Simulated scan of single mutants.
Amino acid sequence: MPIITLTTDFGEKDHFAGAVKGAIYSELPDVKIVDISHSVSPFNIPEAAYIIQNAYSSFPKGTIHIIGIDSEINEENKHIAIKLDDHYFICANNGIMSMICSEITPEQIVEINIHDHIETKFPALEVFVKVACHIARGGTLDVIGKTIGSIKPIRNIIPYINDEQTQIVGSVIYIDNYGNVITNIKKDFFTKIQKGRDFKISARQYIFKEIYSKYSDVVNFETPVEKRNDEGKKLVVFNSSNYLEIAVYKSNSKTSGSASTLLGLDILDAVSVKFINKKN
């Protein structure tokens, strides 16, 4: 029996997450359910896309991922099921899957049509659960929908490069639990455009000229502990998912502040990289 994961913006207070789990267990008592996150900011498509992209591949092939974000069905927000990288994703066609699909081509995409027999006000419970359980039993996507060729894109997913390739303009796509700011600029993309040149990373009025390998690289361990003043230092790294991240060393958004609060950065704010051509 495959695993079913849940990624939603339901939070922990309300009954929604529990009701979805109960409905799955009612149909498949032996299934394993894993919560990826129920703390996605409400209706935050880029945040949900980043979370599911960086979590799904840690699960076994054949895992089924329910994504309950902005899933109310209407003419502009249909429901889809996707087979990609031998995983299954069930969600609204609102851009959530475009981050993954920009790197891996889906094997199959269907627009779910079982709504013809279900009137729903709670799609994750009344539609996504039924589709997930159908797949878990070995059912095919062709039974629950019609094949479509593409999905809705998400804006600002791909950084902009100027014609001279001297500047990348990216945007903030995620702010993590520590208040660190993750951009849509990936390491491979950065390196390809950089071509060994020096650079300046700009975020509002702040300038960074160095990218560290890890957070603690800002610490001078030769300095005695009692004389160090490293906590709160601003830095840039490529994080564990290889995205360019602006961070504050050992930040605490509730006390000393975080990269997001101290730099005044939020989702979709611009972060740019200017490359400096070396003189001959």
Results as ranks from 00 to 15, higher is better:
N94L: 04
K274A: 13
L141R: 13
F199L: 07
I45E: 02
C133T: 13
P29F: 11
S41V: 08
I175N: 00
H15W: 15
R137K: 12
K254C: 08
V172F: 10
R204N: 13
E72K: 15
P2Q: 13
I135L: 15
I67P: 02
S57H: 11
K200N: 12
G22W: 07
H79C: 04
N93E: 01
T166C: 08
Q205G: 11
A48I: 13
R137Y: 09
V236H: 05
E12A: 15
I112E: 04
N94E: 13
V169K: 11
S171F: 06
Y88M: 06
I135Q: 07
F89W: 02
A124E: 03
P29Y: 12
I66S: 02
F16K: 07
N220H: 08
V127T: 14
I211P: 03
I64W: 05
N93Q: 02
I64F: 06
V20F: 04
H38K: 08
N280C: 07
A259G: 11
I69H: 00
F10G: 01
I211A: 07
L6E: 10
Q194F: 12
G257W: 10
L262I: 10
E231V: 15
S26D: 13
V236S: 09
Y178S: 14
I69P: 00
F128N: 00
F59K: 10
D269M: 05
E12M: 15
I246R: 06
I104N: 07
G149Q: 08
L28A: 08
N177P: 06
G11W: 14
D30Q: 14
F122Q: 02
K187H: 09
G149H: 06
P153Q: 03
K278M: 09
I45C: 01
A259I: 02
K130W: 08
S258F: 04
Q108V: 13
I182P: 00
I52A: 06
K200C: 11
V143C: 02
I73Q: 12
D198V: 08
Y249W: 15
T261H: 03
A136D: 11
R204K: 14
G264V: 05
